[in-house]
Amino acid sequence: MSVASIQPTAPEPIIGTAGIPAINLDRVGKNFRLDARREVKAVSDVSMNVGKGAFVAILGPSGCGKSTILRMIASLDEPTKGTLSVLGTTPADCAANHRMGIAFQDHALLPWLTIFDNVALPYRLAHLKADPGRVAQLIDLVGLAGFEKARPKQLSGGMRQRAAIARALLLNPDVLLLDEPFGALDAVTRRQMNVELQRIWSEQRTTTLLVTHSVDEAVFLADRVIVMSGRPGHIIREVAIPFERPRHPDVMRTVEFHHLVNELTEALHPTEGTGAP
């Protein structure tokens, strides 16, 4: 197996099943206004393509603008520079057509709804007839069968996060956006959730953009990993991950896996590289 490391000067060739980019960013920049005099340059000059059916992970130091990129794609923030399209339209149109699934570090389940109703919420917002069978199937898929009637408060952190993932998958979204969905979990639960997400994803092959701090997680889940610099964030490295799907957790014990993890960790913290073996 070979590791493809490409310089990020030009938009990348598309990696994925079909030739149309599901997400396209063209020299996107984002400044946040703090007050009348100061502004923060959160993201600068980011260009990337995520092909249909691809799983792309973004790594980068804290505060480098990963969430900002994801939020712009989800129509939650407007770029100040450059253009951004999702499924050939604007993010706002894509959201209005209910074609996105999203999950945050905060599970964002509504405390007044049961797990079943929380997972079924996208049906309501999309004005679609609820399919109880599909909801139950997803709840089962994330291992929450039997907790349909429970309220979020009665579940553990990991269980809530799984419900949030089930909700994100409900409408078979064309684009799945995940912002550190497992960030609040302990290492063991997180590993378990990674394995489950990998299994689910390998069945559905939804175009996915994952923001994470865990290099292991990124390498295990993604087809391609993007590394960003510190603020203002821009892309400094892209690495293709060649493992076959579905991936068995044993992949994480292979030499190639460790090579990739080391390479990405090195790209993330270049100053530490001097004394490393």
Binding site: N31, A36, R37, R38, E39, V40, K41
Partner: peptide, 8 residues
């Protein structure tokens, strides 16, 4: 941080 641009 960027120098501010055109705030009047």
């Amino acid at each position: 941080m960027e120098p501010e641009q055109g705030v009047t």
